[in-house]
């Protein structure tokens, strides 16, 4: 599989299927890098055709197509188009789960090699690395893994060290609390334990919280208080989260709803995204990922 991958630029994304037809995705926020294989030559064109915000430009002297898209759009477009989702392997800093839920293989259970050995392995496989280990526009650092013929790009956590590489340091990132005004988050879950746990976490991060124990309550509280963002479980009594999502969107088409569910199935993720959810997280969710997703949706 790896032999089909022509080049990888980490930090941004380059899918190079032909020297003069380079697809670049950039400014993706959470969507940092994707490793693509030969079926994606076709898929790259499909993305270009499908996604809004696509435009063309020049990059490094080569004709380039730029795609500025969010993970949601990517998934929704691919699902809508009936793409063979299993052919794409991806790891995204904020959207890995969503892609995984939509059927992509974002498995990280691979033997981990360091950047240098990955580079050597890529060279052996005839794969050219265009750039490596940049912070990109998002200020994040990414690291390349390769094993078993798969190339995986992983976003490093803050403070996590890369190996010695020629690294462009990203400009200092301001604390997020200063970037995003504190928002009101409605937590909808039939589990008292989960509601309390999330409310405590969000309160520590400075968010206001509203609570709802099922879909009926969620719709009512949303109408009354119009929170900035909703965390919505799916399996709930009286009205499930997908039905509540639809009703909330009928009332407020601009509602920002993040599904937070244990139902990590591609059909569920696809339904939620097509219905209008802004993101999809699987339980149990790590607090860092939850906060990152909230911040992304609130931007």
């Amino acid at each position: 599989m790896a032999g089909n991958l022509r080049s990888v630029l980490i930090g941004e994304m380059i899918i190079s299927n032909a020297p003069d037809d380079v697809l670049v995705a950039h400014g993706l926020g959470s969507c940092v890098a994707i490793c693509l294989y030969d079926p994606l030559k076709q898929m790259g064109g499909m993305l270009h055709a499908l996604l809004p915000g696509t435009n063309s430009g020049k990059r490094r002297g080569k004709p380039t197509k730029y795609v500025d898209l969010g993970t949601e759009l990517l998934v929704a477009a691919l699902v809508k188009k009936g793409a063979r989702l299993g052919r794409l392997r991806a790891y995204l800093s904020g959207g890995a789960h969503m892609l995984s839920s939509a059927g992509f293989d974002s498995s990280l259970n691979i033997g981990e090699h360091n950047v240098l050995s990955a580079k050597a392995a890529l060279k052996d496989a005839g794969i050219r690395i265009r750039a490596q280990d940049t912070g990109g526009s998002t200020g994040r650092t990414v690291k390349l893994h390769i094993a078993n013929g798969q190339v995986i790009v992983k976003t490093l956590k803050q403070g996590e060290q890369t190996l010695k590489t020629k690294r462009r340091h990203a400009p200092p990132v301001k604390p997020r609390a200063q970037e995003i005004p504190m928002a009101t988050v409605m937590i909808t879950d039939d589990s008292l334990f989960i509601r309390n746990k999330l409310a405590k976490l969000l309160a520590q991060k400075g968010y206001e919280t509203l609570l709802a124990g099922d879909g009926v309550e969620a719709v009512r509280v949303y109408r009354e208080s119009k929170p900035d963002v909703v965390l919505m479980d799916i399996t709930m009594p009286r009205k499930n989260g997908l039905d509540a999502l639809s009703e909330i969107l009928q009332f407020d088409p601009r509602a920002r709803v993040i599904m937070l569910t244990a139902l990590d199935q591609k059909s569920v993720a696809a339904t939620a995204i097509m219905t209008g959810a802004k993101d999809f997280l699987a339980k149990p969710v790590r607090s860092e990922r939850l906060i990152m997703t909230l911040e992304k949706v609130l931007r």
Binding site: S191, T235, L263, V268, T271, K283, P284
Partner: peptide
């Protein structure tokens, strides 16, 4: 209850994945 919900959901997720079912497999509360 959440342990039960997660456990059965994991089971259903795996069934959906391994059998290639396209419909949603959902547990009760």
């Amino acid at each position: 209850a959440e342990v039960g919900n997660l456990s059965l959901s994991y089971f259903l997720n795996a069934v959906a994945d391994l059998t290639g079912r396209s419909e949603m497999l959902q547990p009760s509360p």
